[in-house]
Amino acid sequence: MSFGSLPYDIAHLLGGAVLLMSFVLLYQRRLEAVIGAFAVQGALLAAAAFWQGFAQGAPHLYVTALLAFGAKALLIPLALRIALRRLGLHRTVETALGVGPSLLAAIALVGLSVLVVLPATAGQAQALTRENLALALSVVLLGMLMMIARRNAISQLIGLLSLENGLILAAIGVQGMPLVVELSTAALVLMLALVAGIFVFLLRDRLATLDTGDLARQRGEGEAP
């Protein structure tokens, strides 16, 4: 498969769109828009999985697609929206790193992942797989970047989830990847999400803020305010 053949083109396009949504996540300033972008990313991921299932003739990928769509595009964004409304958060994203610098860092990270993946997989895998790996690694790195560049717990949670999107993207691109691995990955990260969710509520109760920067004061080393 290479350029010009439809399966490749569509898979390439969807992978790129998932990466683009990672950039949108970093660009947005309002929490609601961040959640919306995350939902779109989930839907795109589901579409990518669906297309891979169709192209590779692997029906189990349809399950992945369904799971991704249900969880990433519908349930989690919905839950986050409800949390947002209930908590009455002021809705701009608090950034630890400005939008411009974090986008610049994101570009550098994409460049880095291209530089890493291409030589590392030279002559070993199909073109599509190699490209998918590069895109997926970029999405993972951008997720991590988002966790660092944002101070709000909800944004950090979304960063983590989009990181997991990257993992799924990597998994669906490899031919013959068994479903088990994906389910376990997904479950693991969902667990993490749960933990993070509880963490959000606890934080809210105890500290009346979602700024994780305030946690530093709770370590017992310094003076409590």
Binding site: A96, L109, L112, S113, L115, V116, P119, A120, L141, M144, L145, M147, I148, R151, T212, G213, L215, A216
Partner: peptide
């Protein structure tokens, strides 16, 4: 360091290692 900065440390290490690998 704050939590964010602590997150940054392993991240930076990872990125540096990746750069080395590249």
């Amino acid at each position: 360091l704050s939590l964010g900065a602590w997150l940054m440390l392993p991240f930076a290490t990872l990125v540096a290692l990746l750069a080395l690998a590249a």
